[in-house]
Design a protein around this nucleic acid. Structure first.
Lengths: 223, 223
DNA sequence: GCAGAGCTTATTGTATACAAACACGTCAGG
DNA sequence: CCTGACGTGTTTGTATACAATAAGCTCTGC
């Protein structure tokens, strides 16, 4: 996309995902424009995009804020994601070709290496994970489905909490990918669907457990 | 929302839904601005919104066009809608209060009157139908779910094809709402979910049949 | 001391001018 | 006649100025 508009989008998005802009803080167009080195016009564009991805909320007076996610919001998103992404897995299993299957195997192998590193390479894990799911979504061949899921995958809180996951949790996730690959290899849509549903739901409980720990740390930090 | 931006949005949206702007036609910002009586800025805003609702496509050069929906696109949207809206029905059944239930009954009674009118009042049917589903979605109490479904419900082709439906088809739809109400009255989430899934899938086949007829008419009209 | 009206200021919405990118048509060369 | 490069015109992107609106504050009256 266009340069300035893109810089604004990825700039703001990065600030939100990294936590530099904390949840609930107001997003003034002027301030953001200055920080991104562009004018307000592309910033407004970016805010609209981020709003459609639910990373940004607007109040009745059209002022923008960083969305804050309650645990029930996150649970909601995971529930929907489980439903849609398991549907994607079913479609992918029915459409996948051998080359794509090999590609997924390679990615999951890379994830395994990240998990087994000392200490575990969480960034590498997350990136591999993202690619793995992205390829499945692409293989499902439904533009609409891709659009819907797009707004569900990026969850700042979840992303940041990932660093709390232990090696076992990461390993579990990786081995569930293996089972998914087995279902793909057999072109068994129902199997893939079931495995993916379990995979996402487990991921939610990983998050919920780790988040509880984080929340307690946050509380302890209060002055 | 703001006045000019809103006028542009509903103006363009209306032109698309009514077929005034046929599928595939280019949407020049300047032209639309003039037709809506606003400047390009709110038009750009509106186009972005419509793009996120998939009523508008943009090519690689950032030019906007009215989205054209193949039958398989529509099938795709219905499939996703069936999944999400039956989930909404389940949640609604588990959360609905007596007052809302009464409200839904009243709406469905109005739909019945529209169906029984001579000739059948298709506009009234569609409006009642929209309200009925909107209230269920609201009762489901999931902002995310509402957001996802928002982009699936408005399908220009489907809307326009509705006038091809016969009285039997409309009546069938209305009586399925009755069954949904029965499930709501019992707070039976699973029942509501199943009825809704069947309801949406039947609606798709109504559309597909009527559309086939329409498509043939269109072909016959070609010079 | 509290409530509310009115002013002040901050923030967003809109219009417009200009810059950049792209599509299309034209013309020259083979 | 075909091909490709170039220039022109159209379309979108960006910046900026100004208008409208909402929030916050003060000051007044009770």
């Amino acid at each position: 996309m266009s340069r300035a508009s893109d810089r604004a989008y990825s700039g703001i998005r990065g600030m939100i995902l990294s936590g530099e802009l904390p949840a609930g803080s107001q997003l003034g167009e002027e301030v953001l424009a200055e920080r991104c080195g562009v004018s307000r016009t592309p910033v407004r564009d970016a805010l609209r995009r981020l709003e459609s991805e639910l990373l940004v909320n607007r109040n009745e007076a059209q002022r923008s804020f960083v969305a804050d996610w309650s645990l029930s919001d996150v649970a909601d998103a995971f529930e929907l994601r489980a439903m849609l992404e398991s549907y994607a897995a079913r479609r992918a299993a029915e459409r996948i070709d051998d080359q794509t299957l090999q590609q997924l195997r390679a990615i999951n192998h890379a994830i395994l290496r990240a998990v087994q590193a000392e200490p575990p390479d969480v960034i590498g894990f997350l990136e591999g994970n993202r690619d793995f799911h992205a390829i499945i979504l692409e293989t499902a061949q439904s533009r609409r489905l891709a659009g819907l899921l797009g707004s569900l995958i990026e969850q700042p809180v979840v992303w940041r909490t990932a660093h709390q996951y232990g090696r076992d949790a990461l390993r579990r996730s990786q081995s569930e990918h293996d089972e998914l690959l087995a279902a793909f290899a057999r072109r068994d849509g129902a199997w893939a669907e079931a495995v993916m549903a379990a995979h996402i739901r487990r991921a939610f409980h990983f998050y919920a457990d780790a988040h509880q720990g984080l929340a307690m740390i946050d509380v302890a930090r209060q002055p």
